[in-house]
């Protein structure tokens, strides 16, 4: 059994506490191991993106804790958390969120530069990743000159530039056609295999979810049931 990388305990998220409050997450817990691949599925509004944001420290829970290698993340200040995210976590969203005024090379190198890496070194790393993604020729292009699939691959390259331990993806194929969607799905699994990444992916797509080791179903802020996946298929 590999060791626990990320643990969430009793995560509750309430918007507008008090009168008219909206309880999005109701005491969720999860243990994520190194090299795990986890799919979180559920209907719209079930709280899966909110849960992912909390696991990724992009949002603080109303109650509960998230531990990374035994360390309580939300005991850190915002600045420390920002640095932690920069060094340990990678993020991919449904929309690519590449900065329109920067070219692909600058976008992909950005996390490394935020982390304090010199420009030339950051761009060298970015170029290696762009080549890996098949985007070497597009490195000096801007986001309005690339297709949806290319943009999403560039955003994955950006998430990987600092060799994160864990990669969070929030519906990464939601905006793509089926061909690009399958290409991105395969890319995620290849990354896990080749780079030893821990993957946590929120998706609507059951086909994509089936490719992960474990699937978590979220309904009204609570786990509905948990599935484990083997190479043979889904186990219930």
């Amino acid at each position: 059994m590999s060791e626990v990388l990320l643990q969430a305990r009793n995560i509750t998220k309430i918007y507008n506490p008090g009168e008219g409050e909206l309880k999005v997450l109701r005491g969720l817990g999860i243990d994520i191991f190194k090299r795990d691949s986890i799919g979180i599925v559920g209907a719209s509004g079930s709280g899966k993106s909110t849960f992912l944001h909390i696991l990724g420290t992009l949002d603080r829970p109303t109650e509960g804790e998230v531990y990374f290698e035994g360390l309580d993340l939300f005991k850190k200040g915002d600045e420390e958390l920002a640095k932690f995210r920069n060094q340990k976590m990678g993020f991919v969203f449904q929309f690519h969120h590449l900065i329109a005024e920067m070219n692909m090379l600058e976008n992909v190198a950005l996390p490394a530069r935020i982390g304090g890496m010199p420009k030339s070194e950051a761009e060298d790393r970015a170029m290696v990743l762009l080549s890996f993604m098949g985007l070497r020729e597009r490195s000096h292009h801007f986001s309005n000159e690339l297709s949806g699939g290319e943009l999403q691959r560039a955003s994955i390259a950006r998430a990987l530039v600092l060799d994160p331990t864990i990669l969070f993806a929030d519906e990464p194929t939601g905006n793509l056609d089926s061909t690009n969607s399958i290409m991105i799905q395969d890319l995620f699994l290849r990354l896990r295999e080749e780079r030893g990444l821990t993957l946590i992916v929120v998706t609507h797509d059951p086909g994509f979810a089936r490719k992960f080791q474990r699937i978590y179903h979220l309904k009204d802020g609570q786990w509905e049931n948990t599935s484990s996946l083997t190479r043979d298929g889904l186990q219930r």
């Binding site: 992009l58 920002a82 993020f91 969120h97 950005l110 935020i114 982390g115 950006r158």
Partner: peptide, 15 residues
Amino acid sequence: YPDIAILKTLGVPQK
């Protein structure tokens, strides 16, 4: 807003 959000996500501190 989206650019600020992504910068924060990537680790740019508030300062």
